[in-house]
């Protein structure tokens, strides 16, 4: 069992095969589903514009393409690195180094369920999904995950995080036995 798992984890053929369903799902969503998010209110747009200008370090009402992820997350979205990389790669291909607020707003609107300020109901749904994601790694269903395992998971699989980020994530959340209460973690992240 373990040997088979070890053999299957490292091959790179799994990732391209795993990304294909996302493309299929997205295309189906684009073809059939209505626009995912309604347009935000004017005050919300003004607030996001202020945050956008906060990332403008040159003073020309534009941000660098490399800061797109930071800007989207600061405006309230939680995109995956694949989405951000896709847009960044598109703009770099068209030799655009800096983009204006309208384009960022378009990207923000096209993020689907990953973007926008969530309502309490949607927040609860996202929290449940988050908890179910963490429960996948909780083999004994006790509500606690070892910190070492969580660190390895976040730094080795998926869209890898750095050690510093993981340290910051786990700071103050590890008890004396080296376990993490992931339900409390989810509450802090979603509602904090």
């Amino acid at each position: 069992m373990m040997s088979r798992k070890g053999n299957q984890l490292h091959p790179s053929s799994i990732r391209p095969s795993s990304t294909t369903p996302d493309c299929n799902q997205k295309r189906r969503g684009d073809m059939t589903a209505p626009p995912p998010n309604p347009k935000p209110e004017k005050s919300r747009i003004m607030e996001m514009h202020a945050i956008f200008l906060g990332h403008d370090t040159r003073g020309d009402n534009k941000i660098s393409i490399r800061h797109l992820g930071h800007c989207l997350r600061a405006m309230g979205a939680t995109p995956t690195e694949a989405m951000v990389s896709k847009h960044v790669r598109q703009y770099e291909a068209s030799t655009m180094q800096r983009i204006c607020f309208d384009e960022v707003m378009g990207i923000y609107s096209s993020l689907g369920k990953h973007g926008g300020m969530l309502s309490p109901k949607k927040k609860q749904i996202e929290a449940d999904q988050f908890v179910s994601s963490l429960r996948v790694f909780d083999t004994d269903k006790s509500g606690w995950i070892p910190a070492i395992r969580l660190r390895r998971i976040l730094t080795k699989t998926g869209e890898c995080m750095g050690s510093m980020e993981v340290d910051e994530l786990l700071q103050g959340r590890i008890n004396k036995d080296g376990l993490v209460d992931y339900k409390k973690l989810v509450q802090d992240i979603i509602y904090g």
Binding site: Q8, S18, T78, E81, F137, L154
Partner: peptide, 23 residues
């Protein structure tokens, strides 16, 4: 099983990145 774990890891990282940037 592996695909499910991969998706879970991505979700965790996505949320944490957003939370961290806003914080």
């Amino acid at each position: 099983l592996l695909h499910l774990r991969w998706q879970s890891a991505i979700a965790i990282q996505r949320w944490w990145r957003g939370f961290r940037t806003r914080h």
